[in-house]
Computed example of a mutant assay.
Amino acid sequence: MAAQDNVKKVNKSAASGNGVISFFKELKAETKRITWASKENVKKATATVMTFCVIYVIIVGLLDFGFKNLIGVIFK
């Protein structure tokens, strides 16, 4: 029975127009609390990710090339 009371309270507040307005006010307050990374840290992280992506692409390309040649030799 207590769970039903809580559901009714939630439905009443969500049904009113103030729910949407309060949501955006709370969203704005939470956004102000975020600790954003510095520009330098973002640049370093981006460079690291890009470097690992390039390394991964090279490794997968070499494996693909090698397996393609291996299959060609096997089925020749």
Rank of each mutant, 00 (worst) to 15 (best):
N69K: 14
G17Q: 03
V20W: 01
K8A: 06
S22Q: 12
A2R: 04
V20L: 13
M1Q: 04
G72L: 05
T51P: 00
K32V: 01
K12A: 13
L27T: 05
N11Y: 07
L27P: 00
V57A: 15
V57D: 02
C53M: 14
V49D: 03
R33E: 12
G66M: 06
M1E: 08
T46P: 00
V42S: 03
Q4H: 07
F67R: 08
K76N: 10
N41I: 08
S38C: 06
K12Q: 10
G72C: 10
F23A: 13
N6T: 04
V57I: 06
S13W: 11
K68C: 11
A47P: 00
E30V: 07
I21Q: 07
E40I: 03
A2M: 10
K76D: 13
V20S: 09
A45F: 08
Q4M: 09
V73P: 00
R33T: 05
T51L: 13
W36G: 08
K8E: 06
G66W: 01
K8D: 05
G72I: 05
I71Y: 04
R33S: 06
T48L: 15
N11V: 09
K9I: 04
T48E: 12
V57N: 04
I58D: 02
R33Q: 08
N11L: 11
I34V: 11
A15G: 05
G17Y: 00
R33W: 02
V10H: 01
F23C: 03
A3K: 05
K76W: 05
A15K: 05
V10N: 02
N69G: 12
K9G: 09
F52M: 12
K44E: 07
R33N: 15
G61Q: 00
F24D: 02
S38R: 05
L63E: 02
T46Q: 15
I59W: 03
T48R: 10
V60C: 02
N11T: 09
R33L: 14
M1G: 02
L70Y: 02
M50R: 09
K76T: 04
L70E: 02
N11K: 11
K68L: 10
A47Q: 12
I58H: 01
R33H: 08
C53K: 07
N18K: 15
V20G: 02
G66C: 11
I55Y: 00
Q4E: 10
N6S: 13
D5N: 08
M50C: 12
K43Y: 02
S13N: 14
L63C: 04
Y56E: 13
S13T: 08
V60D: 03
N11M: 12
V57K: 01
F67W: 12
L70A: 14
G19M: 01
A15E: 01
K8G: 02
T35E: 10
Y56P: 00
